[in-house]
């Protein structure tokens, strides 16, 4: 029943951790039981974005090494009762995550949650392949620029060959999430067009998240952007993406240029 989602990209800094927190919270908001899992060993950040950094006692590696039981390491979200976090370890030993260890933890989590959302580290090394190993669904986070698109293409190839699903002859359900989309640069013609990215990567579109100061603001407060200000444009994009993951068919909205103060006032009044 449970579904494992891996948020991945190849390229660093495109918005994976932001997306993991936002999608996790958006799914939990609908009442589903959700755990977000940080696979970025040594560079843990999901705890910060979720506002749980001061409550980390045990982590993923402690559980794998038998120093803590899984329930001891899970941190319950302050705002949403059905949202939990499994933090990454800050160890510098990149081999601390073992295949068998990860298998056991994910199998356990599958039994207790509706959604297991894995935040992949950047790159195509072990950490990234371990994060995608159990994926039923992969959210390929891509910015509309050449290097991000190239790395996403590479990740798609790896999703098709190095996952448990691939080993079983099945395919991971891959969805494209276009993030940091800048309507002003798009209008100027200096940003890859949405159609071009879709055409090049040939993946179904999960959503478009605009470049927005709301993302930074939410991260300053340690609140997933999807629940910080649910009416903000990025929050709506993430909540809609979560509804699509749950099977709803919603048309994808292309973010428009930001409205000025006056436009905003008009929209509120409407």
């Amino acid at each position: 029943m449970a579904k494992v989602i891996t948020v991945t990209s190849g390229k660093g800094g495109v918005g994976k951790t932001t997306t993991t927190a936002a999608i996790g919270a958006a799914l939990a908001r609908t009442g589903d039981k959700v755990v977000v899992v940080d696979f970025d060993v040594g560079l843990r950040n999901l705890d910060l974005i979720m506002g749980a950094e001061r409550r980390v006692v045990y982590d993923f590696v402690n559980v794998i090494q038998g120093d803590a039981r899984l329930p001891q390491a899970l941190i319950k979200d302050k705002r949403l009762d059905s949202l939990f976090l499994l933090p990454a370890s800050q160890t510098r030993d990149k081999d601390a995550l073992t295949e068998e260890g990860v298998d056991k933890v994910i199998d356990d989590l599958r039994r207790h949650f509706d959604w297991v959302v894995c935040d992949s580290p950047a790159g195509i090394e072990r950490g990234a392949t371990l994060a995608m190993r159990h994926a039923d669904i992969a959210i390929v986070v891509t910015n509309p620029e050449v290097s991000s698109v190239r790395d996403s293409d590479r990740i798609v190839g790896i999703l098709d060959s190095k996952t448990l699903k691939a080993e079983r002859g099945e395919t991971v359900d891959k969805r494209l999430l276009l993030t940091r989309y800048d309507a002003v640069r798009a209008a100027r013609g200096d940003m890859l067009k949405i159609e071009d990215v879709l055409d090049i990567l040939s993946l179904p579109l999960l959503g478009i998240v605009p470049e927005s100061p709301d993302v930074l603001k939410a991260s300053n407060f340690g609140v997933p952007v999807s629940i910080h200000d649910p009416d903000s444009v990025p929050a709506r994009a993430y909540n809609d993406a979560a509804r699509r993951l749950k099977g709803e068919e919603l048309a994808v909205e292309v973010p428009k240029q930001r409205l000025g103060l006056f436009g905003k006032f008009l929209r509120r009044a409407a």
Binding site: E145, V146, V149, R150, D153, R154, G157, I158, D160, S161, K162, R188, G189, D190, M191, L192, K193, D196, I200
Partner: peptide, 29 residues
């Protein structure tokens, strides 16, 4: 009247990726 740089990006990517998919492609497959 403004022609942006996006078409260049698209063209370069299409050429590069058709090559990389051939070399690296589904890696093992």
């Amino acid at each position: 009247f403004t022609n942006g740089s996006a078409p260049q990006a698209r063209e370069r990517l299409q050429i590069l990726l058709s090559h990389e998919r051939q070399v690296l492609g589904g890696d093992d497959l």
